[in-house]
């Protein structure tokens, strides 16, 4: 049975960034740089969001020769709704009071 936990502060930060341009594909490093989340923190969140159908991913080949393809991510329709709900809900208000807003 899946637990329905409130999104963590790091998840909210990530969702805030992804909802800026929900239909755009994002690279992992790009998300890490903008959200200032380290890879060890970011990727489990991406994994969980993918598992819950909030995020979709795909491999994108790169133009540079000799470089491997990159994984890109963007919110699904369900993810967009979830993110908007999470970012404007009581959890977000509580976390905003502790340090910064997400809108």
């Amino acid at each position: 049975m899946e637990r329905n936990r409130r999104p963590s502060r790091h998840t909210l930060v990530l969702l805030a960034e992804l909802t800026q341009r929900p239909r755009r594909w994002h690279y992992g490093y790009e998300l890490s740089r903008i959200t200032e989340l380290k890879s060890g923190t970011l990727y489990p969140i991406l994994m969980r969001l993918c598992e819950r159908g909030m995020l979709e991913s795909k491999w994108q080949p790169t133009a540079e020769e000799g470089r491997p393809p990159r994984h890109t991510y963007r919110l699904t329709a369900a993810g967009v709704a979830f993110a908007r709900d999470a970012l404007t809900g009581p959890a977000a208000h509580g976390r905003a009071a502790l340090g910064g807003s997400y809108t």
């Binding site: 690279y27 992992g28 490093y29 890879s39 990727y43 991406l46 994994m47 993918c50 991913s57 491997p68 393809p69 990159r70 994984h71």
Partner: peptide, 9 residues
């Protein structure tokens, strides 16, 4: 897949 994504990144 996800770990491979980190490796490629």
């Amino acid at each position: 897949d996800l770990i491979a994504a980190m490796a490629h990144e």
